[in-house]
Simulated assay, not measured.
Amino acid sequence: MVNTAGTIQFKEYPSIASTGVIVGPMEKESPFADSFDEVCLLENEKDESFEQANSRFIEKACAIAVSKGHEQMENMDVFIGGDLINQLSPTNFAARQLAIPFLGVFSACASSVESVILGCLLLETGNAKSILAGASSHHPSVERQFRYPLEYGSQKPGTAQWTVTAAGFALLQKQAKNAPIITHATIGRVVDGGQTNPLHMGAAMASAARDTIERHLMGTNSRMADYDVIMTGDLGKIGLSILKEMFQDENSGIILQDAGAQLYGENTFFNAGASGAGCSAAVFFSHIYNQLKNGAYKRVLLVATGALLSPLTFQQGETIPCIAHAIECRMEERG
């Protein structure tokens, strides 16, 4: 049941049984590189379009998650995923190859957590036992759709973020052994702070992140200090700074972190940090997942953020509506 804050408490405590994360060549220097399952040295293979490469990344990430979970692809009940390309083309084509009942989702860069929430709801009904959920992005294909082809060589301001090439997927099950569990989720609301600059996404998405975090804390009767970390999806360095200023909690400076701000470390080549639907998926399903598994984190709140614009709405002069979805994860040992 969804409470007045938009928060769901899962009775069955779905498990993240395993994960699969594959990234591109620019991500090999990430502080999280050792946590990624595979690093590809090329954005695409010979005679392969960037969109086809995106699909291949999705397929491989799903295969890794299934293998690590000691399962078989034919035992997967549902595949839930999304990306940033028109009509979810890369995910659709990956679903064609995986041949699993498929639900495509779009919350822009918040799609990873939306996918997990839908998967948990399906597990709660008892109509599914094993679900693949996650999201992806691919730098060259996203740049071509939302900005300019790489060959154009456009220059970006310091507020811009770098779309990651990554696919991250989780294998969700009801009773996995020694796996992190998902206790709650908060469904995001569309929040529009009046921002119009598509090269300053962090400023646009910060308000949606604040709204979801505040409602989740209210819906779970929790305080910020109750968490080891509250990690947002891809606000980047500037957006994270804005979010911290929005909270008056004395713990916000330490507990609030951001996948986009951290994925490329302090490398200024990437301006304000990372973005893309694969950004939160890659960090959540590698580093954060491992920290839960090894006991370094006991309770975390993962908040994926998404800017719901398109090239068309930008050209029509619309502002940038945003959304943030959240899941709360804990480590619970099961015999």
Rank of each mutant, 00 (worst) to 15 (best):
P149C: 06
S154W: 13
D211P: 00
M224G: 08
L199I: 09
G219S: 09
G236E: 06
Q155C: 03
T220R: 12
I238D: 12
G202C: 04
I238S: 12
A176S: 14
S207E: 13
A160S: 15
A209I: 01
D228M: 01
K156N: 13
M205R: 12
S154C: 14
I230Q: 08
Q145S: 11
Y152L: 11
R210M: 08
A170T: 10
P180H: 03
P157N: 14
S207N: 11
G153C: 05
I182T: 07
M201Q: 14
Q173M: 06
V190N: 12
T163M: 08
R215W: 00
D211S: 06
T183Y: 02
M231H: 09
N178I: 01
H200V: 00
G194S: 08
P149H: 10
A166S: 14
R223D: 12
T159Q: 09
N178R: 15
I187N: 05
S222E: 06
M231V: 10
T159C: 08
S222G: 05
D228H: 04
D192C: 12
N221M: 06
D226E: 11
N221W: 01
Y227P: 13
A167L: 06
T163W: 02
M201W: 01
M201V: 11
Y152F: 14
S154G: 14
G194V: 01
T159G: 13
I187W: 01
V191N: 08
Q195N: 09
I182S: 09
H184C: 11
D228K: 03
M218L: 10
H216Q: 10
P198C: 02
A176P: 09
F169P: 15
P180S: 06
K237S: 08
R215S: 10
D228P: 07
R210N: 09
L235D: 07
M218C: 11
H216I: 03
D226W: 01
A170H: 13
P157F: 05
N221A: 14
L235P: 06
D234S: 13
Q161P: 07
L217C: 05
A208T: 02
G202F: 02
R210E: 13
A209K: 03
I238C: 04
T186H: 03
L235R: 03
F146G: 05
L235Q: 06
Y152S: 10
K177N: 07
G219P: 11
D226V: 02
A185C: 04
K177F: 04
Q173D: 05
T212R: 03
D234E: 14
K177S: 11
I182Q: 08
R147Y: 15
A166I: 04
P180N: 06
G236C: 07
Q195C: 06
T232I: 01
Q175N: 15
A225F: 02
T212D: 04
I181Q: 14
S207M: 06
I182H: 11
Q173A: 05
W162L: 05
T220C: 15
A206I: 02
Q195W: 01
R189P: 05
A176C: 07
A160C: 11
R189G: 03
G202R: 07
D211L: 00
F169C: 07
G188A: 02
P180D: 08
R210G: 07
D211R: 00
P180R: 07
I181T: 12
N178K: 15
T159E: 11
A204E: 04
